[in-house]
Write a protein that binds this DNA or RNA. Structure first.
Length: 873
RNA sequence: GCCCAGGUGGCGGAAUUGGUAGACGCGCUGGUUUCAGGUACCAGUGGUGCAAGCCGUGGAGGUUCGAGUCCUCUCCUGGGCACCA
């Protein structure tokens, strides 16, 4: 190899191939393409201004899958769009006096150019932003259909109010008592709001998780916990003394009806109607209830407070014994919106009830005896027993298991009638709440209803859609610009024609992202979807995004699919057949001498110590954390792509770290990736010089070096295909390195005669083309340039994936490791078809084995075919 | 507190699911090329020992011919949920 290899210049080459792809339109999908379909989708970005490394990682992974599936002969749908409504646009409007739309569309233009520079195989013809009128028009149509189908509800509810953003948040948008976006402490307020009835699907959303086999177990578990199903009973307690005149009973929910004979009190939420009635005549109780509510604003405070209660003086009768009276407390640890807002307390078998009972001197009677404990001496101290056991002190339940006792209590209470209703009934309860979608904001999809004084809430007629956002709005004062707009909300009632007003709330932006995947199948349709098209392309075969959306976005999307099915917009329940959640991109953090964060480019290394590149002051290297602007540990994708090329950035993102884990961005790692780009370029150049012309078939009966080269290529092909199918990109990358190493060595070993042999030249042709096709999904620009060097004038992006020849994967002889007592001592090479007896004989003939055995016969020889031999001495 | 996931060289990580621990990359060491830096190339790189060998997958036990992988206990790290009756 005497010629001076030219360097591969990514900066010049990459734009050329992107233009070639565009020109040929090869990533545009024909919806009627008869080949098997494959839908790969990455979570679409919020147009915040510029893409970050997390986007690069996410979209690179999706692109590998898309390009690979295309090569495998699928008709691939791989679209991109923008999750474009939301608060940052309004904040920018306030700060910089721009219009949210102008800000958003400018950001989209910037980010689209950045995504294009990555060389992604996207069908840009399908692009849309959720703030496009055409998109939210169809979303309003969906809303009206959901309303008609009874899936939308307007109700007054205690809501999470974010005082900084001035809007309502869904439960799942409150994290540790703070708004998920603003971080402000959330307050509880009573407001009339629009809700999607996601709880109508609680049972189905839970049970269908089992069928999502290509979802991460972790995500399924998180959703399961979030939905929070529990089986229990509603039990009616008759009120005896001290009850308000209009209330004669108290209904509680319990999952432990078996412990009814261990009851020592009843407890109410301060917001329970019985508590409120009692507080009306008891000022002290009213004060206590008010105290509870104050604490209740912060979940962090809730977690640490002591259990407190207030005896209302009311007494209730035990359902199995009318003479047994139980005190009714108001307690600070009872939630109004779970179950009935009331419980019965069994201190011996519930820790919270035990803490409460100890504080107020209430009886603690064990009714479940742990296995192995003695009934005569068993007592409960400071730890409640909530595990299994047998019932004691429980009359007719004594001796039963917990499950059997639950059955027996249910049977009896269901059979006992009071005022025409059973005293108890089985009930399944869910933690999941309905999804409040009202937001008091401008930059969102308007809720298409009109409020009329005589007709009430009137849906906007479908023919009047879209309800467009007005352009002339100002953000100089707090509050909702739609609400204070001089004319927008004033409209005649569609029913009676009288003056009425529009709903000024807009939809939660999670609504926008709950059906965009369906819209991509027919992005310009004048209905939300086209049934024939959407039914062919959904579900998404592979969805890829961040695990931070494990609950919110994915649960809402699953709800939307069901709601859209019910209203005839599509034909399935589960929108995402395969889900992959990728890890974050991390980087070291740096702090200067003054304690301020520094950007990575401000930091240099001198004599093994980190210093500031300008001031030479010492720099402290901090923890490796996920990239964030606030800590300045960010690397700009543009800088990397401009400096090294998109292929290097893509390759690095796929290398080394398993895709589901956090990846650490390092300079040396990127440089390594860049070096490999050059190495591949030289290797393909060398192969091209040696290789037979384009179209030469692989040598069928190769021997010697030609056979070795073929085996290398086909071995790598089989492995990489398997790795990409399983999204194990880091392993696929390692296999490409191995193939490149192997081919480099094989080329170096060829003597002049071998290099001139036709079968070697044909094998080199085959190996070079396999190599290029194998890395083409990961480094598509380099692959095109290599493809051209190999003499092709078509694009590798449309070339079919190579086919493995299984015969090349098998060897005539195999080398087995030989262990003695489980420790490896030798290798033995035997014919592939050798029987166990032949292998054993070969092993025992080995000098090393004879030496270790010291001439004695082995106790036993274990031969695992094709695997290993173990000699037991 | 409860529920998950995970601890493997200096670092990121492999290991066909019970069968050669450390693939591949980064880093490092020595050498060749180069005025030099970088690049490129060659050799080496878990620990220990002159060596045969011995020790090694957070820790302690166990099952097995054989354990990173299975079981019991324990420590640590990351994530989710959090008075859900």
């Amino acid at each position: 190899m005497t010629k001076t290899p030219e360097r591969y210049n990514a900066r010049e080459v990459e734009p050329k191939w992107r233009a070639a792809w565009d020109e040929r339109g090869i990533f545009k999908l024909d919806e009627t393409d008869p080949r098997p379909s494959y839908y790969v989708l990455e979570m679409f970005p919020y147009p915040s201004g510029r893409i970050h490394m997390g986007h690069v990682r996410n979209y690179t992974m999706g692109d590998v899958v898309a390009r690979y599936k295309r090569a495998k002969g699928f008709a691939v749908l791989h679209p991109m769009g923008w999750d474009a409504f939301g608060m940052p646009a309004e904040n920018a409007a306030m700060q910089h006096n721009t219009h949210p739309a102008a800000w958003t569309y400018a950001n989209i233009a910037t980010m689209k150019a950045q995504l294009k520079s990555m060389g992604l195989s996207l069908d840009w013809d399908r692009e849309f932003a959720t703030c496009d009128v055409e998109y939210y028009h169809q979303q309003q149509a969906l809303f009206l259909d959901f309303l008609k189908a009874g899936l939308v509800e307007r109700k007054s509810a205690k809501v999470n109010w974010d005082p900084v953003d001035g809007t309502v948040l869904a439960n799942e948008q409150v994290i540790e008592g703070r708004g998920w976006r603003s971080g402000a402490l959330v307050e509880q307020r009573e407001l009339t709001q629009w809700f999607f009835k996601i709880t109508a699907f609680s049972e189905d959303l839970l049970s269908a998780l089992d069928g999502l086999e290509r979802w991460p177990e972790k995500v399924r578990l998180m959703q399961k916990n979030w939905i929070g199903r529990s089986e229990g009973m509603l039990v009616r307690f008759e009120l005896a003394d001290g009850a308000p005149a209009d209330q004669s009973e108290l209904e509680i929910f319990t999952t432990r009806a078996d412990t009814l004979f261990g009851a020592s009190f009843l407890a109410l939420s301060p917001d329970h109607k019985l508590a409120k009635a009692a507080a009306a005549t008891n000022p002290e109780l009213a004060v206590f209830a008010e105290e509870c509510r104050r604490v209740g604003t912060s979940a962090a405070a809730l977690a640490t407070i002591e259990k407190k209660g207030f005896d209302t003086g009311i007494r209730a009768r035990h359902p199995f014994d009318p003479d047994w009276l139980l005190p009714v407390y108001v307690a600070n640890f009872i939630l109004m919106d779970y179950g009935t807002g009331a419980i019965f307390g069994c201190p011996a078998h519930d820790q919270r009830d035990l803490d409460f009972a100890r504080a107020y001197g209430l009886p603690v009677t064990p009714v479940v005896l742990p296995d192995g404990a003695d009934a005569a001496t068993y007592t409960v101290g400071t730890e409640a027993h909530d595990d299994a056991g047998r019932l004691i002190n429980s009359r007719f339940l004594d001796g039963l298991t917990v499950d059997a006792a639950k059955e027996e209590v249910a049977r009896r209470l269901e059979g006992e009638m009071r005022s025409g209703r059973p005293v108890g009934q089985r009930q399944v309860n869910f933690r999941l709440r309905d999804w409040g979608i009202s937001r008091q904001r401008y930059w969102g999809c308007p809720i298409p209803v009109i409020h009329c004084e005589t007709c009430g809430v009137v849906p906007v007629p479908a023919a009047d859609l879209p309800v467009k956002l007005p352009d002339d709005v100002s953000f100089d004062v707090p509050g909702n610009p739609l609400d204070r707009h001089p004319t927008w909300k004033h409209v005649p009632c569609p029913k009676c024609g009288a003056p009425a007003r529009r709903e000024t709330d807009t939809m939660d932006t999670f609504v926008d992202s709950s059906w965009y995947f369906a819209r991509f199948t027919s992005p310009r349709a004048t209905t939300p979807t086209k049934r024939a098209v959407v039914d062919r392309w959904l579900p998404v075969d592979q969805y890829i995004g961040g695990v931070e959306h494990a609950i919110l976005h994915l649960l809402y999307s699953r709800f939307f699919a069901r709601a859209m099915k019910l209203t005839g917009h599509l034909g399935l329940d589960e929108p995402f057949a395969g889900l992959f959640t990728q890890g974050m991109v991390t980087h070291e953090t740096y702090k200067g001498a003054d304690g301020r964060w520094l950007f990575p480019e401000e930091v240099g290394i001198k004599d093994g110590a980190a210093i500031h590149v300008k001031t030479f002051e010492p720099v402290t290297i901090g923890a490796v954390e996920s990239m964030s602007k606030s800590k300045k540990n960010v690397v700009d994708p543009d800088t990397i792509i401009a400096g090294f090329g998109a292929d290097t950035a893509r390759w690095f993102m796929l290398s080394d770290t398993p895709p589901e884990r956090d990846i650490q961005w390092t300079d040396s790692g990127v440089e390594g990736a860049a070096r490999f780009v050059q190495r591949l370029w030289r290797l393909v150049g060398d192969l091209a010089e040696l290789a037979a012309p384009v179209g030469t078939p692989a040598p069928a009966a190769a021997t010697g070096p030609a056979l070795d080269i073929r085996r290398l290529a086909h071995g790598a092909l089989a492995e990489i295909e398997n790795d990409i199918e399983k999204l194990r990109f880091n392993r696929a990358v390692a296999r490409v390195y191995e193939l490149a190493n192997g081919l480099t060595t094989a080329l170096g070993d060829l003597d002049e005669a071998a290099a001139a042999a036709p079968d070697v030249k044909a094998a080199a042709r085959e190996a070079a083309e396999i190599l290029v096709k194998l890395f083409a999904p990961m480094m598509p620009h380099l692959a095109e340039e290599c493809w051209a060097v190999l003499g092709h004038d078509d694009l590798v992006a449309v070339a079919p994936w190579p086919v493995v020849e299984p015969a090349l994967l098998a060897r005539d002889t195999i080398t087995l490791p030989v262990q003695v007592n489980g420790k490896k001592r030798a290798d033995v090479t035997v014919p592939r078809e050798a029987g166990a007896a032949d292998v054993e004989a070969a092993v025992l003939a080995l000098d090393i084995i004879q030496r270790v055995l010291e001439g004695k016969p082995p106790k036993k020889v274990i031969v695992v075919p094709q695997r290993i031999v173990n000699v037991v001495a």
